[in-house]
Computed example of a mutant assay.
Amino acid sequence: MSETHHFTTGDGCRIAYRIDGPEDGPVLALSNSIATSLHMWDRSVPELGRSFRLLRYDLRGHGASDAPMGAYSLDRLGRDVVELLDFLDIRRAHFLGLSLGGFVGQWLGIHAPDRIERLILSNTASWLASELPFDEQIRTVLAATDMKAIADGFMRNWFPAAMLAAPNPIVDEFRAMVLTTPPHGLAGCYAALRDVDLRRTIALITAPTLVIGGEDDTVTRASHSKAIAATIPKAELVLLPGVHILNVEQPDRFVGAVTSFLRSA
């Protein structure tokens, strides 16, 4: 796979990114879940990279990107993507975001419609502040002496019990991503989720949209996926058996749904 590169945003944050796939392929940008890095897509790259020029990046506060102190906003996370596309001279791209990456995708569909060809929103929601105690989570992560308990909590939310019952290399990889996420980077993104409500404004999205949800997702539930698909005009909905990180729990069905939707353009 490709090497990691960096570019610097207008507010001075270095963002890490990688590009894989054919140089002449249509660009598909991949945006990851909170507390992970661009490596959450590693297992999807070989298949998706056959047809698409894949652009992966680390959200600010995550992976090999800088982690500025303080609260982040969804507006800033979205503008990071627009500035990355500008830096790479990419006028339009398909965009696939999972979890927090799906929030970013919704923002782009609303505020940068000229940059998005087709939009895929996986295991995400338009509003979570009423359901999750983000201020408490911010205090907890900033006060933690280590990230082990926080990582264990993410694993329970991300994967089915069968994957957690015995040693599993996928779970180990994702736990390692959480353990190496800077606490203030995670807290910054918690603040972005705390402060956003897109339930009404996603009705403005005009890009052809596919919504993918997990039937057993306990964080961004299937009901969230259904609500998004019902609000975005002509959006398609696919529900898969699984929890939150569907691209690794249901790799074939996930990639199949993505490629089928993008090839129908």
Rank of each mutant, 00 (worst) to 15 (best):
T140V: 15
P113L: 14
V104E: 02
E117F: 10
R76Q: 13
L100F: 06
D80W: 09
R91W: 11
N123F: 05
Q137C: 14
P133Y: 14
L100S: 04
R92C: 10
L88P: 04
V141P: 04
A93H: 03
A93N: 08
S122V: 10
L119I: 07
H111M: 12
I116C: 07
G105F: 02
D86F: 02
D75M: 10
L88S: 00
G78I: 11
L96I: 09
P113Q: 12
R79P: 04
Q106D: 07
I120H: 02
S126Q: 06
A93E: 03
Y72I: 11
R76D: 10
G102P: 04
F103P: 02
E136G: 15
H94A: 10
P133I: 10
L142M: 15
L74E: 07
L121D: 04
I90M: 06
I90H: 02
I116E: 08
G109A: 09
N123K: 00
Q106P: 07
S65Y: 00
E117K: 11
F134N: 07
P113H: 13
G97V: 06
W107K: 08
Q137M: 14
D66E: 04
A144E: 11
S122G: 13
L98R: 05
R92E: 14
S130H: 13
D146F: 11
R115L: 10
G105A: 03
F134A: 09
S65G: 01
L77E: 00
S122E: 08
R91V: 15
L128H: 02
E117S: 14
H94V: 11
L77K: 00
I138N: 06
E131V: 14
D146G: 11
I90C: 09
L132F: 14
D89S: 13
E83W: 07
T124P: 01
R79L: 14
V81H: 00
A144V: 12
A129S: 13
R91T: 15
F134H: 11
L119T: 02
D86A: 09
S130A: 14
N123T: 08
A143H: 08
L108A: 09
P113F: 12
L100V: 07
F87S: 15
F134T: 06
I110P: 00
A71G: 12
T124A: 03
G63I: 01
L84T: 05
P113G: 13
A71C: 13
L121F: 05
F87R: 14
L96N: 02
D135N: 13
W107T: 03
L98H: 09
D75P: 04
A67G: 06
T140I: 13
V104Q: 00
R92F: 10
L119E: 01
L74S: 09
P68Q: 04
A143E: 08
I120W: 03
L84A: 08
D86R: 04
S65W: 00
L98A: 15
D114E: 14
G70K: 07
M69H: 15
L96A: 06
P68S: 10
P68R: 02
L85E: 07
G97C: 04
S99E: 01
A64V: 07
L88N: 03
W127T: 12
I120T: 03
M69V: 15
V104Y: 02
E117A: 12
L132W: 12
L77N: 01
A112F: 12
